[in-house]
Design a protein around this nucleic acid. Structure first.
Length: 588
RNA sequence: GCGGCGGUCGUCUAGCCUGGUCUAGGACGCCGGCCUUCCAAGCCGGAGAUCCCGGGUUCAAAUCCCGGCCGCCGCACCA
């Protein structure tokens, strides 16, 4: 008995939505090609995401595009080079694979962080750690780096680069530039849609786990001392989302509970209000893709399951037939981690400015030194001393002076008489302060959504497949056909097709019988089919058939586009006042 | 990467154990023609497979053996 998953993959490959890449060379796991319908469906999903996440928030969310290849320093700074690496060890007896670092941590209660493969192996040997399942001896510890590596420039093997495993770093790197363009106002978000690559160890579930996939992400920056999210209460306070909390999961509970978004924030179940807001939008977005609310929930990750940059993470789950659940998006509270790291590694000023309501008085010590005294004391060595003193900030110098005992102050190995320095206390009025914004990140995998849309659209009716795509994402919007393939019906249908192509992806349906043509349209999930029948030549009208009800309306030929437009926007075409033709029962 | 199972027209599959009319059969789909006044599968004809790749055994290999590639399931990782 083939599962729904198999049926859907079958269907999708047969109809040319997607197939495995590099087929003529035997295929390559983790890579899929999209066919024409797949491209249409995916781009409709992306466009809908753009509408929900960017277009509806355009006054403070902007989309950018950055390269896929980045110099190694970027992912050194982001922590990926270090954390996207796993150490594995295999049992020589039962051939099970384990995370070597986890094994050491569990057994010995010590942290294995920062250890190299050989060091972990040494610890395993010394402490005679054996396979936790069968007790067999363990083999060599080996390292997986999940980043794809390459080099920038043909002559520069030293210029190591990585393919990005997430789009986020492109947004963090451009934080300051976009912040300026956004007139230095928080909060704001940077969105990006693009390909990412992860060198997965063994991807197997077809298009569910790919080595290269499209990600749709927002890095949303806000001032955590003033996180108030009016939109949350405006758009989402009445919205309920289903949450499965980490503390419940730890107790073995696996049933998510519905909670209003505002309550989840007030109760500190979701730590970041903006994270909560985007989760609410994510729920609405997934609903628009055809997933009812009782089939999706947010699962909070346990601390051990979270990525290195995250303070709190929720995975958005959609219930699927094959695996029970499938993560379609991740919602991470990245707080200040990434900007801090990039400030540290790049020395760039990635701060935002917070205006204070009242000026802050800052008292601090400033150190001044007597230049003439330096010259008379050090003579020809004086320039060297000035250079050393100038390299230090006033605060740092004040600290050294304050901490020095005796009559001399040692600065960078040079002893300077204390009498040369004069410490003054100063008061400054400050109207702004520098802050590192906090970050809430919603991140979607486009190909997984593509699968979800297929699974939720898939239905069968007496052995016939009907894809009930939401109209917005349906790859082909309208079909045209003559009732029978004869003139003058064919000529009218062809002219209509030509007109419809100017507006939509449309399809001219051919086939043995009208029933077969409708079946063909249903199989592709085409929402509307326009049929030219024997009344059309004299009356100048046609019928429009609705995929889901199979009912038709009679519409003048020049009104067809108007009706289809309305129908695709969600208007019930049967309420437009055109004559309705009830469906004919299937023949036995 | 390791272990188990698998790979035959576009798709599903017969054949494999027990090598030989298998120059690989069928169904769906596809192409051409006929029929057809509203919900697929009526008729006629046609195209389409060096049986995953490479090597070996044999007079003879889709079939037996070895290696590789790919897929599925398990370990680990994961949007």
């Amino acid at each position: 008995m083939s599962s729904k998953f198999d049926k859907i993959i079958d269907y999708a490959v047969r109809k040319g939505f997607f197939w495995q890449s590099y087929e003529i060379y035997g295929g390559q796991a983790g890579f899929y090609d999209l066919g024409s319908l797949g491209v249409l469906l995916k781009s409709n999903i992306i466009e809908l995401w753009r509408e929900f996440f960017v277009k509806q928030h355009q006054e403070f969310v902007v989309e950018i595009e950055t390269p896929i290849i980045a110099p190694a320093i970027v992912f050194k700074a982001s922590g990926h080079e270090e954390n996207f690496t796993d150490y594995a060890v295999e049992c020589l007896q039962c051939h099970r694979t384990f995370r070597a670092d986890h094994l050491v941590e569990e057994r010995l209660g010590i942290s294995a962080e920062g250890l190299k493969a050989e060091q972990i192996e040494e610890v395993i040997r010394k402490n005679d750690i054996r396979c936790p399942v069968c007790g067999g001896p363990l083999g060599n510890v080996y390292r997986f780096l999940l980043l794809f590596q390459t080099y920038i420039g043909p002559y520069s093997p030293s210029n190591l680069a990585y393919l990005r495993p997430e789009a986020a770093q492109g947004m963090f790197i451009n934080f300051k530039r976009v912040y300026e363009l956004m007139k230095r106002r928080l909060p704001f978000g940077i969105a990006q849609i693009g390909k990412v690559a992860r060198n997965e160890i063994s991807p197997r579930q077809g298009l569910i786990r790919l080595r290269e996939f499209t990600i749709m992400e927002i890095e949303f920056f806000y001032d955590e001392s003033n996180p108030t999210c009016d939109l949350l209460y405006e758009n989402c306070s009445d919205e309920y989302i289903n949450i499965l909390r980490a503390e419940d999961r730890a107790k073995g509970i696996d049933k998510p509970l519905p909670i209003s978004v505002s309550e989840a924030v007030d109760e500190k179940i979701i730590l970041s209000p903006w994270l909560a807001y985007w989760m609410c939008i994510a729920k609405k977005f997934v609903n628009a893709l055809g997933v009812p609310n009782n089939k999706t929930y947010f699962e909070e990750k346990l601390p051990s399951e979270r990525a290195h940059y995250s303070k709190q993470t929720f995975d958005q789950i959609v219930i699927v037939e094959r695996w029970g659940k499938l993560e379609v998006s991740g919602h991470a509270y990245r707080h200040t981690y990434d900007l801090e790291r990039h400030i540290e590694f790049s020395r760039a000023d990635l701060y935002a400015i917070r205006q204070l309501k009242a000026p802050k008085i800052i008292r601090r010590s400033v150190v001044k030194y007597d230049k003439n005294a330096v010259i008379s004391f050090f003579g020809t060595k004086a320039p060297q001393v000035f250079k050393v003193l100038a390299s230090l900030s006033s605060e740092a110098l004040a600290k050294i002076v304050a901490e020095s005992k005796g009559d001399g102050v040692v600065v960078e190995g040079i002893e300077i008489p204390k009498t040369i320095f004069r410490v003054e206390d100063v008061e400054e009025k400050v109207w702004v302060e520098k802050i590192i914004p906090h970050v809430a990140e919603p991140s979607f995998g486009a190909e997984r959504l593509l699968y979800i849309v297929l699974e939720y659209a898939y239905s069968e009716d007496g052995g016939k497949v009907i894809m009930k795509f939401p109209k917005r994402v349906a790859p082909i919007k309208v079909g045209v056909t003559p009732l029978v393939d004869r003139e003058p019906l064919e000529g009218i249908a062809h002219r209509l097709f030509k007109e419809l192509k100017r507006h939509y992806y449309a399809m001219y349906l051919e086939g043995d019988s009208i029933g077969k043509k409708y079946a063909q349209a249903d199989e592709l999930g085409i929402p509307f089919v326009v049929t030219v029948d024997y009344e059309s030549p004299s009356k100048g009208d046609v019928t429009i058939r609705d995929r889901d009800t199979k009912k038709q309306i009679r519409v003048p030929i020049d009104g067809v586009v108007k009706v289809i437009d309305a129908g695709l926007k969600g208007v019930d075409i049967f309420s437009l006042g055109y004559p309705i033709i009830e469906r004919v029962e299937d023949k036995e």
